[in-house]
């Protein structure tokens, strides 16, 4: 009998939680705000689902019931991706060491 692919995805999920746990504990507290903004940006990888949904419409009817939600999700996720990474970059650029 074959293993259900769901089990593989669940394994990835559980292991990623552990990876996240250890990686996040090693983040220096002074960078906790950039941590939040960058996690915000990366969670917008949900845009891949939005793209699939948006392109599911056929060419005669680009904006059908399902694809409209996809297009809306693309806008929201894109705001987050660009906004999240850029504001993180802006913050990180401000962290400087003492001038010798």
């Amino acid at each position: 009998m074959e293993i259900d692919p769901f089990v593989f995805r669940l394994s990835i999920f559980i292991l990623s939680i552990f990876v996240g746990y250890y990686v996040v504990w090693s983040v220096t507290p002074s960078l906790h705000t950039p941590l939040m903004s960058v996690t915000n940006a990366i969670s917008s990888v949900i845009i891949v689902g939005a793209i699939i949904a948006a392109l599911a419409g056929n060419n005669e009817n680009i904006f059908n019931e399902a694809s409209v939600f996809g297009f809306l999700a693309i806008i929201l996720a894109a705001v987050n991706i660009f906004g999240g990474f850029l504001v993180t970059q802006r913050m990180l650029a401000m962290y400087k060491k003492k001038k010798k």
Binding site: F13, V19, G20, L35, T39, S43
Partner: peptide, 24 residues
């Protein structure tokens, strides 16, 4: 959503962000 779409990137990211927020 990652599970729904069977998308590894989304599952990994979701788990990372989820545990990050929980730790904070």
């Amino acid at each position: 959503i990652g599970f729904t779409l069977e998308n590894t990137a989304l599952i990994i990211t979701g788990a990372l962000v989820g545990s990050s927020g929980a730790i904070l």
